[in-house]
Write a protein that binds this DNA or RNA. Structure first.
Lengths: 192, 192
DNA sequence: GCTGGTAGTAGACGGTGTCTACTCATCCTG
DNA sequence: CAGGATGAGTAGACACCGTCTACTACCAGC
């Protein structure tokens, strides 16, 4: 526990750890407060509502994912198409290894909470994707934003359905690599 | 209220209506029981747990979606590629017009509840998709199951992110038609 | 006519999110 | 230096939730 960390930040951190370790059903307002060592009424000073605290934890996840993506891209290098493969892999890894966090990040009921909405926090990541698609896409036919949107949706769907378990059962695969490959090829053409 | 409808079916029906009309936060066990006109302990005779009742409601959604898909396909006709477009449209319409239901259908925490799992109930729909893809796919390169899985994931992602609101904001579009078009073309080649 | 099981009731229990009244320390002002 | 205002956190109440258990009608079969 960092020394001079305001309660606000501590609640976000403790809540995030709780979420990652014990899943979405564990992040009740009272349990977070308990783990943070304060009374159950204390969070209310910083987050008027349980959903606002959850929303802050979800936003934390988006900034973390964006950071991971940026550093992976900086480390891996390669042409735009290869970078998109890297970005996609980071995305799927995040969804698979931090399921609870990922789940929370896309919950509908906390979309508008907090001074910066959840959507807005996800925009830098989408912009990164769009920029790469603009450089990598094979044909000028669909605008880059459309291809990027479709590609993001595809990644998101793979992450979601994979965690859900249906794709394993239906395709018999043990990891989503084939799906990812087919998806990248479909939207961007074959790898160089 | 149908005359001779067992409480079990009535709970599923009333719960489904409640879900469609007032959203996922309204389908508490006690509220469903109240609307069904029974005490809050009554559902327990048929559903040992709240999650099992929710799971049954979700399964009801899957069978309804499958029915819609089948009848739309029978009505529309066309070649396999056109039928896939129809199927995709039905899927996105369902997700957009019955958001709460759709959301519930893919909740992780009620995956294994009930004598028939949620996944299993979704299989006929996926099989339908796979069959159509097997007939329509342009190249033999990725197996039909992989293409079908990637396509389903893409549809699911569009539905999810569209409801989430991020795609609207990022692409500026007012409906997901362009995304759907790009997706179908990417995975299946241009329409005939 | 009694008996046994079935369907549903009613109340308790612990947990949850929210609200409100309160304490207590700290800081600013006179 | 005294005193009041403000901010941070406490503690208890409230209604609601899911689950569990004891109880009561009711109805079929012997």
């Amino acid at each position: 526990m960092q020394a001079d960390e305001g309660l606000r930040d501590r609640l976000i951190r403790v809540g995030g750890e709780l979420l990652d370790n014990e899943g979405p059903s564990a992040v009740s307002l009272r349990e977070i407060a308990r783990r943070a060592g304060v009374s159950h009424g204390a969070p209310r000073r910083y987050f008027p509502t349980h959903l606002e605290l959850l929303s802050a934890i979800a936003r934390d996840g988006f900034t973390d994912l964006t950071t991971r993506a940026n550093s992976a891209l900086a480390e891996a290098g390669g042409n735009p198409r290869a970078q998109l493969a890297t970005l996609a892999q980071v995305y799927l890894d995040f969804a698979a290894t931090r399921r609870g966090r990922y789940e929370l990040m896309f919950r509908h009921d906390l979309l508008e909470s907090g001074h910066l909405g959840l959507r807005d926090t996800s925009l830098p990541l989408f912009r990164l994707l769009t920029d790469l698609v603009a450089q990598a896409r094979p044909a000028p036919e669909p605008p880059a934003q459309v291809t990027a949107g479709a590609l993001w949706a595809n990644l998101h769907g793979i992450a979601q359905l994979w965690n859900w378990g249906s794709l394993t059962l239906a395709t018999g695969a043990t990891d989503p690599a084939a799906l990812l490959d087919a998806t990248l090829t479909a939207h961007l053409g074959p790898a160089a």
